[in-house]
Design a protein around this nucleic acid. Sequence first.
DNA 1: CTATGGTGCAACTGTTAGGTTGCACGACCC
DNA 2: GGGTCGTGCAACCTAACAGTTGCACCATAG
Lengths: 103, 103
Amino acid sequence: MPRHPADAVFGALADPTRRQLLSAIAEEPATATELASELPISRQAVVKHLGALSEAGLLARERVGRDVRYHVTPAPLSDAVSWMAEVGGQWDERLAALARRLA
Amino acid sequence: MPRHPADAVFGALADPTRRQLLSAIAEEPATATELASELPISRQAVVKHLGALSEAGLLARERVGRDVRYHVTPAPLSDAVSWMAEVGGQWDERLAALARRLA
DNA sequence: CTATGGTGCAACTGTTAGGTTGCACGACCC
DNA sequence: GGGTCGTGCAACCTAACAGTTGCACCATAG
């Protein structure tokens, strides 16, 4: 059964390490080994996190020689924001403003 | 160690059942028993999901006689949206627009 | 008072997720 | 060619999570 895309997106964002990775890649595309060198976890753990982010459609892989460089593809974030604005817009004026902006 | 609030918010939103619950409560505040009657899971399972949503600050409990009625408190959604707009705004025009709106 | 129905708490089970280690493969440099 | 460094794959461990059942508690209806 294909899970709803939002499952993967919110699930990917739920982990602090993954948010950190996404934020770092947002500043500058990087490889798994580079990212692992700045974190207290192994490269393999980073690869798994990047896999989760990729599966959510938040990252794209680009092969450069023997390296694999990851960069951000933020389109799914907009969908997630839309959902949140729809649910919360009824009570929160800031979210309602976002919902109007998206409409 | 107190986890970052975003952990709880995105983690709560990662589960489809919880998004369904949040959406239902957004339309109309309800009790755990009411919500469980419309889902294929037990009341206790619903209570646990509501606990996760509450811990993320997305729900508030209101005691009414012997019932406990849950309603939406969407403030944490705005914070989550801000983070997403900041990370994605550099590449996605829609998110950039949201980031400007929030600033 | 008694029965009822919603709530709260605890124990238990099965599955998933984050993390590790070890090793094979492939491309680049000298 | 031979060494080196990044990547890919697999097995394994452990903690956390979704779900269940069973039962005690308490407020309201008759």
